[in-house]
Each structure stands twice: as structure tokens, then as C-alpha cells.
Nucleic acid binder design. Structure first.
Lengths: 145, 145
DNA sequence: GCTCATTCATTGATAAATCAACAATTGACA
DNA sequence: TGTCAATTGTTGATTTATCAATGAATGAGC
């Protein structure tokens, strides 16, 4: 391994750029489709759709985001009438987050498009390559615990 | 390919998390070492070190960042007396960016540590796996042009 | 039953990313 | 030479991430 690699040659740089540009690509496609939400907001919406009536801490675990980020993203999604916060009778510190009716409709209406975008990003990669990628990323994640 | 994968199972999510957590890991190590700059600022510093006397547009190309981000990051690095902006005699729209003396000293002093951190992230990956990773990321980048 | 540590959600400060709009220059070309 | 489009850097608005600190509520242990 070359310890004196230029910035543009390092794996971290490549990883970072790839992720950022994928997100940018997805965002622009979403804007063109007129979705009017961000990539991150879609991800959060999807987690809520998959887990309905979930607390913000659990949401932060599933989405792997800081609870502070979750709070602010939920504020925005709530303004767009996509999600609601319901007080938890069992634990008054908590809110249970769920999709609103229009949030559910929005999610259903755009899931296929979003899946297609996601597929486009890994287009042309074989199952073997995808498996390799997952394994490598897993290893990296172990390295930084 | 499963079109109905949960968020946590998608490649985009894995990529995103890996990059974010690598950055977080690196930042915390840097904080412990007392570097007092951010991961992104180090990257920019490194690009300047590699390209001395470079314009902000060229810097934005090398670092693959928006010129707006470059402007603000340079403001911060300038406050820390790491870089300077010198007026370009040939083109009065431009500044030429270079390391200050203390910026150069700082960069020299910490390069080995930063290289070590970078190595730690890909520890245990074979040359073959690194090559695979680069190829796969390259393919993804082609997909989103 | 009380106390005290923990948990949950929020807020503030700071950094970085994106887009859009802008002023000052530059340079192409009619 | 004069005009006009393009380039360079900056700023503003918005979103997301990080950490630290906070108030309210919970629950474990005495």
C-alpha cells in the first residue's frame, strides 16, 4: 500500500466521492420527478413505513442517525404532512412516529421510482461483485469499531 | 436483486453508513491527537500541499467539492493560519492558495499519523479486495454520470 | 416511598453540502 | 474597440451531521 498516495488516489476519497455523487444523482432525479423531499427524508420515510409506530430512538438506530438529526428531519417531514408524532401512553418521554395518510400515499406512489433509481446506481454489477462489496464494507465497519 | 429490500439491506445505505462512520472514526482519532481541524479540512490541506499555488476553482476540481464549500473551508483554514490567499497578477478574479509556514509544519508533523489512520480503515483487506473495491466504485460512478 | 442514574427528545453551536444569485473580471468576436 | 457571454469567488438559504447541554420522565436499589 502506498502511504504517500495523493488525495485522489485514496480509498477513503473514492468512497466519499462515490457516496456523495450517488446521493446528488438521486436527489436530482427526485427533483425532476417533483418529489419535493430530500434523499435522506425518503430514507427516513421508508424506515417509518417499514416499522410504523416507532420511537425516535429506535428510528435513530434503524436509520443509523443521531437523535438530533432525527428530530430535525421529523420536523420537516411533519411540516410536509408525511409523518405524525403520537404521544406514547406507556412512556411519556416518547413519541411514536407513523406515516400520515398522505405520507403513506406518497410513499406508495413513489416506491417503484425510488427502487429504480437505487437499481440504476448498481447497474451492471454482478451478484458476485455486490456480494464482494458488501463483504468489504462490512470489514471496513469492523475496522473502525 | 430484491427490489423490496429494507433500508438496512440496500447497498446505498451500507455505503453511506460506512463512509459516515469512517469519517466519524477518523475525526475522533484526530480530536484525540489534538489536531484541532476537521477531516475535510485535512483533505483540503493535503490537496493544497500537493498542488501549491492553486486557484479555488482548480482546488474544487481536485477535491471534488463545490466552490462555495471551498470558499468557506478556506476561510476556516485561513483563520487557523494554515493557508493563505495570494492575489493572482495574471487574473484579478483569482486567488492562488498555498500553505503558510505553520500550515506546512502542521501538515508535515501529522502526515504519518493521518496515513496510519487511513491504513487502519482498510486493514485486513487484501490487495485483490482493494482492487475489487476500486473497480466497483468506478463502475458506480459511471452509472450516475 | 425516595433518591439518583438513565433514557428520551429537544435545542444551540459549528461544519459541510447543495443550489441560486451576484459583482468583478476576463476574453471572444463582431 | 465595444459588447456580451463566461469565469471566479462570495454570499444567502436550506439541509444534514456532530457534540454538548438541557428538562422531563422513568426505573433501579435502598
Amino acid at each position: 500500500m502506498n502511504e504517500r498516495a495523493k488525495v485522489g488516489e485514496t480509498i477513503s476519497f473514492l468512497l466519499d466521492q462515490t457516496v456523495r455523487q450517488s446521493k446528488l444523482f438521486t436527489q436530482r432525479q427526485m427533483d425532476q420527478l417533483g418529489l419535493n423531499i430530500t434523499v435522506e427524508q425518503w430514507t427516513l420515510l421508508k424506515v417509518v413505513a417499514e416499522n410504523g409506530r416507532i420511537s425516535q430512538v429506535d428510528l435513530s438506530l434503524k436509520a443509523q442517525k443521531d437523535t438530533a438529526s432525527i428530530t430535525r428531519m421529523l420536523d420537516l417531514l411533519q411540516k410536509k404532512d408525511m409523518v405524525r408524532r403520537t404521544a406514547d401512553d406507556m412512556d411519556r418521554r416518547k413519541f411514536l412516529i407513523s406515516l400520515t395518510e398522505s405520507g403513506q400515499i406518497f410513499f406508495n406512489r413513489h416506491t417503484a421510482q425510488m427502487d429504480a433509481l437505487r437499481s440504476k446506481i448498481v447497474e451492471g454489477l454482478s451478484d458476485q461483485e455486490l456480494a464482494d462489496l458488501e463483504r468489504i464494507l462490512e470489514r471496513i465497519r469492523q475496522n473502525i469499531v
